[in-house]
Computed example of a mutant assay.
Amino acid sequence: MSAQYALSLIKFPALLVFATLVWSVNGNAATATGDAQNLDSLYRQVAASPIRTDDDRQVDASRKPVEFLQFANVRPGMLVLDVATGRGYTTQLLALAVGNSGTVWAQADKPRQELTKRLADHPQPNIIPVVRPYDDPVPDDAPKLDLITIILNYHDIAYMPVDRARMNQRLFGALKSGGHLIVIDHSAKKGEGVTVAKTLHRIDESVVLSELQQAGFKLEQEGDFLHNPSDPREQAFFHMKMPTDSFALRFVKP
């Protein structure tokens, strides 16, 4: 635990509970009882962590970090790969939830200054930045993973010169049996496929389902916590005054 983070615990007494759950030596406080209520408490403490940025909090209303962690069933000690880390919003949530006995590899196709700054401001030794191409995103020395996430970026990968079939096969091979892949993205209209991936930054949910099932993944659950039926699906998210209609898919490796 960094000195700066230790000081934050003094300033924010409620985080003593968070520290007990997440930064304990064995990293298994939340799972010791197997109590879902304890996990929900952990997730709320993660979302409230003072090391998260003001920019993060501004988008929390539309991205719903607690509901995301619940849907992904993140637990202390997990080994996680966050594909297309971007600013590190999701990476940091995952790292706080898995604690010091877990690890999050933050993959990007090139170094991300936002992630570098985030870690410089609040070092988290359980986050490992990884620069690798999207069609081969898994670190060579990574052990078998419990969880992989691709959050609001499958559509970007879809218009890049990426072999998505190869990428998905690598992700499938990287997971433990029973491990999960979470994909969340902005919904395109049905039948649009990937045709609006670059212009509207959206993708047809059926494309994601088909491509990942072809790689061997089984759909385990669909989440509705990011659905917005008022979204006509005709604009990019950065042009909208309301949250996009987004789908959330949880796949499992048999």
Rank of each mutant, 00 (worst) to 15 (best):
M1H: 13
A3F: 09
L7Y: 08
I10E: 07
L16V: 07
V17I: 10
F18M: 10
L21Q: 14
W23V: 07
W23F: 15
S24Y: 05
V25A: 15
V25C: 07
A29W: 04
T31A: 12
T31Y: 00
T33C: 04
A36F: 05
A36I: 14
L39R: 09
R44I: 06
R44C: 02
Q45I: 05
V46N: 01
V46C: 01
A47M: 05
S49A: 15
I51T: 15
I51F: 08
R52N: 13
D54Y: 08
D56M: 10
R57V: 09
R57D: 01
V59Q: 02
A61D: 00
S62T: 08
S62W: 00
S62G: 01
V66E: 01
E67G: 00
E67D: 13
F68K: 10
L69R: 02
G77A: 12
V80H: 00
V80Q: 00
L81F: 05
D82L: 09
V83W: 01
A84R: 12
T85Y: 04
T85M: 11
G86S: 05
G86Y: 06
R87Q: 09
R87W: 08
Y89R: 10
Q92D: 10
L93D: 03
A95K: 13
A95H: 06
A95W: 09
A97C: 02
G99T: 08
V104C: 03
W105G: 11
D109W: 06
D109K: 11
E114F: 10
T116V: 13
K117M: 12
R118M: 15
A120S: 05
A120H: 06
Q124G: 03
P137C: 03
P139T: 14
D140L: 15
D140R: 13
K144R: 15
L147V: 11
I148F: 04
T149W: 02
I157R: 04
A158V: 08
Y159P: 01
P161H: 00
P161N: 00
V162R: 01
V162L: 00
A165T: 15
M167T: 10
F172I: 08
F172Q: 04
G173K: 13
G173P: 05
L175K: 09
L175F: 01
S177G: 03
G179P: 06
H180L: 04
I182W: 02
I182C: 02
H186L: 08
A188K: 12
K189S: 13
G191W: 13
E192Q: 14
H201T: 06
R202N: 06
I203W: 04
I203F: 09
D204V: 13
D204A: 10
E205D: 05
V208Y: 08
L209G: 08
S210R: 14
A215N: 12
G216H: 03
E220C: 05
Q221T: 14
G223E: 03
N228E: 03
P229H: 09
D231Q: 11
D231E: 06
P232W: 07
Q235V: 03
F238H: 14
M240L: 14
P243Y: 05
P243W: 02
P243T: 13
D245I: 07
A248C: 11
A248D: 05
L249A: 03
R250E: 03
P254A: 09
P254E: 07
